[in-house]
Design a protein around this nucleic acid. Structure first.
Lengths: 230, 230
DNA sequence: TCTATATCGATAAATATATATCGATAAGTT
DNA sequence: AACTTATCGATATATATTTATCGATATAGA
């Protein structure tokens, strides 16, 4: 009786969605090794995840498995890619040709993820006109108009924090529907748009904290408690 | 009666840790605007988070606030940085000078995050000896020995998936205690070490899925149900 | 000085996520 | 052919995370 079936609401948890790419990645490895079928237990063992969790995650793609056997590797990859919409290419604009932007422009595997960066933009005159990893850098002025004319749906935002909202606005104006935001700033968008903000340092915070723990640098929370007294 | 206080176990959730950098980022902005105190309600509004959640997250740093007022901005920033260990610099090695590695080498703000990349490594002869963003690229052979001699604790892994484990092993041998892993592969490390694996595409999967939803491309789970019949 | 209010800190409730259990079933084994 | 086992799919339980509630308290205003 969960929202999954009760009608309007979408229900796949972000946690599940986030694991799908790692399944796909691993399945590709197995496929490369000629493996035709694979079970949740196997995947779980390789990826250190609970088999039940794997099964539940995969279920969202609509894949059906065979008891005692598992899933067909190829069908499973196909199901994941289809579910995520990675089997038809979306055009994307990238704005901000700094270090992160340049790295993404250099990534030649995006087509396997349903993404094709068709243009790069910046407002730095010394960058405009240059070719970065095969993508010509265009002036930011042209963004909105070009996005509208090309019906580009995805924008990749790799600008500094203070420019994030204004560039996002240009994207919104141009009819872009989903923004992959690498700027360390939250951005406001109208209802019905999709924003996925990536914070490089959120993962690093986890690492830092765990490192501080294992190195014994940080006192445990309980020990800190008397700081509450005044 | 949670693990937080009951003794040995550490308890700060990854979810909380992941939010700390965004608080810090926003607090820096406020500080730049001369704001001396800030409340959880204010932070929550800006970052679209529940105030209670913000309060709970901040509590892990040991900060103490004043009713009706909030927290001192500066003390709060300091508390977050101190909690994450970002106020004393860790030396780090980066391995794999591809697009991601190059981007990270070009990132000049790491010192604000307690990180100083002191050397870069690769096994590509055409890269070795070159300077990338001021960091000389060294041969991979030297990694283990140099890590041990310099007492480097943090390794940044920006190599292709198939090289990930072998390079991780070199790091482990060299005495590195924490690996920030950007390779799309899980890596095995001994007990007591820290691994933080970043998957660029896990976030993209969320974006793809949500985009497919709003564009009405994907049928809902319920509609899919009859695929179960055989 | 007294009252009203925003906020903290702690705790309780609600929600979401992860894990365990169980019947059903497909494939191999005796 | 019956038995055993691994696995699926569904459901139930357990755990984790988020959100709401409540008393205490510091500040502002009457």
């Amino acid at each position: 009786m969960m929202a999954s079936v009760t009608g309007t609401g979408e229900s796949v948890s972000a946690a599940s969605l986030r694991r799908l790419p790692s399944y796909r990645q691993y399945l590709k490895v197995l496929q490369g090794m000629g493996r035709e079928v694979v079970s949740c237990s196997h995947i779980g063992q390789a990826l250190k995840l609970n088999p039940t969790q794997v099964r539940k995650d995969l279920a969202v793609t609509g894949i059906v498995g065979r008891p005692k056997v598992g899933y067909e590797t190829e069908a499973l990859i196909e199901a994941i890619e289809s579910f995520l919409g990675w089997n038809n290419l979306n055009q994307a604009f990238l704005v901000g040709v700094g270090s992160m932007g340049t790295a993404l422009l250099g990534y030649d595997q995006f087509n396997h993820y349903g993404l094709k960066i068709v243009a790069a933009f910046d407002n730095n005159p010394s960058l405009i006109g240059q070719k970065i990893h095969g993508h010509e850098v265009l002036s930011l002025d042209k963004l909105t108009d070009l996005a509208a004319r090309m019906h580009v749906l995805v924008g990749i935002l790799t600008v500094p924090a203070q420019a994030a909202q204004s560039v996002a606005n240009l994207m919104i104006f141009g009819g872009i529907r989903a923004i992959w935001n690498f700027a360390p700033a939250p951005i406001e968008v109208p209802e019905g748009m999709v924003v996925q903000t990536e914070d490089l340092f959120s993962g690093f915070a986890v690492l830092s904290s765990r490192l501080a723990e294992v190195m014994g640098i940080r006192r445990k929370a309980g020990v800190n408690a008397d700081a509450n007294r005044r």
